[in-house]
Simulated scan of single mutants.
Amino acid sequence: MSTFLLEIVTPEHVVFSRQVESLSVRGVEGELGILPGHIPFVTPLQVAPIVIKSEGKTQTIAVHGGFIEVQGEKTILLAESAELPEEIDLERAIAARERAERRLSATVQDRIDHRRAELALQRAVTRIKVSSRSKE
């Protein structure tokens, strides 16, 4: 089966670097599926899980924004942060989701930064999804 090199890089370190068969990500325009030989492009990413298929197995990684660049036989995902399922503290993610939901339900008089709370909620939900999938 044909593969391409996928590298997931954050400002701190390389999270993932392997040959993969396919990749699914959520860009700002919607869901994107990348296979070997995909046309080159660059697009921003949403906070969402990505799904990697390699050697007949599926792996999910929590990605918190950034960009993806497809370059023929190499794809680079430059993420603000990325977490493998085993790195996620599920209890902490659930607590973060609850905090963000409380902030979003607050009235305008509370002067809460709603965009920041929405992003915190998206990150928490992404972590919970990725952590839960790894236990299936």
Rank of each mutant, 00 (worst) to 15 (best):
L104W: 09
I68C: 01
G56Y: 09
L121Y: 04
K135I: 11
V70C: 12
I68M: 01
S105I: 05
E55A: 14
Q59N: 06
R92H: 13
Q122P: 01
T126N: 10
V47R: 10
A62T: 02
V108H: 08
H38G: 06
P44C: 01
V28F: 03
E87Y: 04
L90Y: 15
A120I: 04
K129L: 12
L90Q: 15
E55Q: 14
E101S: 12
G37D: 08
E136R: 13
P49E: 13
G33I: 03
A106R: 15
F16H: 13
R92Y: 08
A82C: 05
Q71T: 11
V20I: 15
S131K: 13
V108L: 12
I88T: 09
F4R: 11
L78C: 04
R92L: 09
E80L: 06
L119V: 10
E7Y: 00
L23D: 01
E7G: 00
E86N: 14
T107D: 13
T60R: 10
H13G: 00
S132G: 10
Q71G: 00
P44M: 08
L119N: 12
S2H: 11
R99T: 11
L32I: 15
S54P: 09
E101T: 11
G66W: 09
M1D: 07
K53Y: 04
Q71A: 13
E91V: 10
E7S: 11
D113V: 05
M1I: 04
L45V: 12
E136W: 02
S54G: 10
T43Q: 08
R123G: 03
T60V: 07
P44N: 06
A117R: 02
A117E: 04
G27R: 00
E86G: 03
Q19R: 15
R116K: 15
Q109K: 13
L45N: 04
A48V: 01
V15N: 03
I88V: 11
H114W: 05
T43W: 00
E83N: 04
E118I: 05
P40Q: 06
Q122W: 09
V28L: 14
G30P: 00
